[in-house]
Write a protein that binds this DNA or RNA. Sequence first.
DNA 1: TCTAACCTTGACACTAATGTCAGAGTCCAG
DNA 2: CTGGACTCTGACATTAGTGTCAAGGTTAGA
Lengths: 120, 120
Amino acid sequence: MRIGELAERTGAPARMLRYYEQHGLITAERSPNGYRDFPEAIVDRVRQIRGLLDAGVPVKIIKQILPCLGSPEEIYFPVPDPEMLAQLEEQRDRMTRKAECVLRNRDAIAAYLERVSGTA
Amino acid sequence: MRIGELAERTGAPARMLRYYEQHGLITAERSPNGYRDFPEAIVDRVRQIRGLLDAGVPVKIIKQILPCLGSPEEIYFPVPDPEMLAQLEEQRDRMTRKAECVLRNRDAIAAYLERVSGTA
DNA sequence: TCTAACCTTGACACTAATGTCAGAGTCCAG
DNA sequence: CTGGACTCTGACATTAGTGTCAAGGTTAGA
């Protein structure tokens, strides 16, 4: 599919799709006319990227962790570089803390809303 | 306490503390010499701010939700503005989705690490 | 008293993620 | 075959969060 359709289906502006491609988050074939040609599967990938971005995970990190997610059959398990493994472990723990923090504060908001609605 | 001590105790550079003050996330008295004078309680507040920022919550939102968290006895429950309540509800749901997304991807990383360590 | 360490404000720079616009090529539909 | 819709690249603008530096005031200690 072309970039317009992908944009429409994912909600990501075409500008961002080019940006993601430029930064190696997604790849696209090129039609003879130079237009990007995305495979169907890219839709989910873009949704995942958007989710991670929205969750505050920066592009650099997403690029690192994307290969570990989805389509595991595509992965070679290419003698995992120990440095990268360390980064992944750190990232995992970081995301744990991040989630905890978000949930803690969400609960605080929820509690506040409870109190207010109870008062009303 | 002065800004240097606060910076040291929170890990936030003094530059950022001024930034937070400028954006209304924290407040400080002023000593006669013009130096900021922070109360003890600000330490936790700054830690909370840092946590939220690290979790990808922008300053604007933090400013909105901070009054709802901590020290509830300080809050007047000032006829909660319905528009703000709506924003808070949206923020709560947003944070739920955010946490889910982060956890989902963290689990994917964890699973990957499991596989690799199992293979090793 | 002088120096070092602290504080002040203000300015400039940078990165990440986006928006937007310009100029040019492509393609379909009338 | 022409106009409108789509695509391409590239450049510039913007916002948030930070880093850093300059020029100056304050203060504590040798």
